[in-house]
Design a protein around this nucleic acid. Structure first.
Lengths: 229, 229
DNA sequence: TTTATTCTAGAATTTTATTCTAATCGGCGC
DNA sequence: GCGCCGATTAGAATAAAATTCTAGAATAAA
């Protein structure tokens, strides 16, 4: 009966804790509001447990609108995934571009991945836990190497280092597994509270250790104390 | 109108491809049939996309039975997770028990994890992708270190090697991240078809590389050509 | 202003999950 | 064998959620 017609308020200052959430909110169209609301709900209750109606209420839009912007419930999940992934990809690309040596590249990757994930817990968790979501298979499989799409640019920069004799010659999946695997696992544990280190410290340590796995080992000529640790 | 009453056939030879599925089928009560059917459907269509009714049809039982054995749809997912995890845990424990040196332990862990995962693709994928499922938080959080429950026995065996100076002194999360991270990531890529190595070869390679990351480095005294590659 | 298009709205419908009540089974004491 | 009992099976009934549909309103272009 009451017909509020269009919502006047276009900006919703609330619900912006993550930097990503704030970024999304900046645009603040209906679609964006839906995405922020969904991310918050997903993070709190899990994707399966949140209903379309909860999103509808949290974003304060109508079901019709929701279904206008997203094909379906799954479509919403997929859209959120792509949106977040794109944001992270941009951050990562910018960061990687500022480094040139192989070692610096590794450090930057690990540090950036961890830092962004810690700063955007909901987004990072969602991306990590829904890599496999069916609605994403399209996005995921249109990549070249691995399920971990955003890694491709990194691989392109790392490959030359292999032929240059800096990194061990390894098939790409192995190299990427060594680089990304420990980082993602550490983040999962960190989320679960099982960690003693602060993010920056962990990033440093992880880079060091990963480096020893992927770099061509340096032969120490004399018994010079190179203080391995 | 037709009342088939009880199903006479208790063994369902079909649907047993994975060794796990076969194991489950051996018991072959109603509950077990539901679990096998669910695993197959989940693997094919994803958890979200499969309905209770599909499970009901595939397992050829009634809805009443299903809800008698599982509290809810989520309860089914949780039960499946626990069942599969327990099976894997048993295999792993048995395998780890046969080795004593730290290096052999690492090799065994990596090889076993990869081997089991490749032999039981549906089970492995389900376990990997639903670590975070809400119904599992209980199971997951009743562990000591990390989200990765089954790792705890491994950690117990690895810890002494740190104090013995064989492994680098590291906080447990870091050590475990280095060990399990690359393996899980490689498996994900393998599932996606992005791999050139066969499982056994990858396992060997991964152990070698992980070892270089976690072991205390050996200092080479003379400039002997150790041909790094 | 007109018109086409995009967006919003919410009732109506369909699909899916869950509950409820009534059997049926398989054993156990007698 | 008989009758009872808890565990299990059945499927109809109900509740909850997702999706579709039709209509109306904003927006932009002409």
């Amino acid at each position: 009966m009451t017909k509020p017609l269009r919502k006047p308020a276009r900006t919703d200052p609330a619900a912006a804790r993550d930097t990503v959430a704030r970024d999304i909110a900046t645009g603040a169209g209906t679609r964006q509001r839906a995405l922020i609301a969904a991310l918050a709900l997903f993070d709190t209750q899990g994707v399966d447990a949140t209903t379309i109606e909860q999103v509808r209420d949290a974003a304060d839009i109508s079901i019709g609108s929701l279904y206008h912007h997203f094909r379906s419930r799954e479509g919403l999940v997929g859209a959120l995934y792509e949106d977040l992934l794109e944001r992270y990809r941009a951050v990562l690309a910018a960061e990687l571009a500022r480094h040139d040596t192989t070692r610096a590249l590794l450090d930057a990757f690990v540090a950036t991945h961890i830092d962004w994930s810690v700063r955007n817990p909901a987004a990072a968790r969602f991306l990590a836990e829904h890599r496999h979501h069916p609605a994403l298979q399209a996005a995921e499989s249109r990549l070249q190497h691995g399920t971990t799409d955003f890694l491709h640019p990194l691989l392109l920069r790392l490959r030359p280092a292999m032929t240059a004799g800096i990194l061990r010659p390894l098939p790409p999946e192995l190299l990427l597994s060594l680089v990304i695997g420990p980082v993602q696992t550490w983040l999962r544990m960190q989320r679960a509270g099982h960690t003693s280190l602060k993010p920056a410290g962990a990033a440093q340590k992880l880079s060091d250790l990963i480096w020893d796995a992927i770099a061509v080992p340096v032969v120490i000529r004399k018994a010079t104390a190179r203080t391995a640790k």
